[in-house]
Design a protein around this nucleic acid. Structure first.
Length: 267
DNA sequence: TCTGCATGAAAAA
DNA sequence: TTTTCCTGCAGAG
């Protein structure tokens, strides 16, 4: 589900499945009927992702741009051949000769001009998954800020694509307290966090899910494996830290549940 | 089958 | 800071 890795994976998938073909677009639910009508019959030229934002560029000049943000609930489904009978609230359906893609529950589904796209992405921080991402901009921003590290990593204007899972896990892997003010963390540590997120996000794109634990840390002394085995601290409130056994703590930071180990991440 | 919560962010207050 | 958007699913019963 949707942190940056999901969106980049979707961009690649849509590129592969739909790009180069004429697309029939519809909004069975009706909430995007006008936009769908404008896309309908156009050729998808290329797809792009920046952080959690997905873009489809349509038309010869690539100047008709579909912008989708999945938010918390949004989902894309796709398939080969005939699309299934539309069920429930289907915001957008894209159909080519060979494939279909359905969008449900997005926070944003809108058409933008290239100028509007540029304005949106200008507000976003560098995305570690993008070629040529401006690391210096990230380092500069976090290095000056009084805000806590756990807030900075969730701020899409600071670094784009990191969500609540990657926040918790990157902080743990860096041994960094979520409460440490950005300017007190140190440039080398922030650089390491960026590099680690870059690796983790890329692994997430490949796997299609977030896996942040080293294999040797994933083994459990007893019991059934759970979904949370892929994480060190995320959604593990009260469970023993995989490294030191201390119960994982949780509290709300930047409007989301933050998880951390008070011993491995002192401060 | 039902309930509450969830990987997000804009709008309202 | 709180509400809203409005989907899917894990866990409870």
């Amino acid at each position: 589900m949707p942190e940056g890795h999901t969106i980049h994976r979707l961009a690649r998938r849509h590129q592969k499945l739909l790009a180069g073909a004429e697309v029939r677009a519809s909004s069975p639910q009706g909430r995007f009927a006008e936009g769908a009508a404008l896309i309908d019959g156009a050729v998808l030229r290329r797809t792009d992702a920046w952080g959690k934002h997905l873009f489809h560029h349509y038309g010869e000049a690539e100047d008709l741009v579909l912008h989708v943000h999945l938010g918390l609930y949004g989902k894309w489904r796709d398939g080969t051949g005939e699309p299934p009978e539309p069920k429930g609230a289907l915001r957008l359906r894209l159909v080519t000769q060979d494939h279909w893609a359905d969008l449900r529950g997005p926070t944003a589904c809108e058409l933008l001009s290239p100028q509007e796209v540029a304005a949106r992405t200008a507000r976003l921080g560098p995305d570690p998954l993008r070629k040529g991402a401006d690391v210096e901009r990230f380092l500069d921003r976090v290095g000056r800020s009084r805000a806590p590290a756990g807030t900075l990593l969730m701020d899409q204007a600071v670094i784009a694509g990191v969500g609540n899972v990657y926040r918790a896990e990157a902080l743990f892997r860096a041994g960094l307290s979520p409460f440490a003010p950005g300017r007190e963390v140190g440039r080398e540590t922030w650089q390491a966090v960026w590099d680690d997120l870059s690796v983790l996000l890329r692994a997430g794109v490949r796997a299609g899910r977030i896996i942040t634990t080293h294999p040797e840390d994933r083994r459990r002394p007893a019991g059934r494996p759970t979904r949370a085995d892929a994480h060190y601290v995320y959604a593990r409130t009260g469970l023993p830290c995989r490294r030191c056994g201390t119960p994982v703590q949780a509290e709300v930071m930047a409007a989301r549940n933050l998880f951390w180990c008070p011993v491995c991440q002192p401060g």
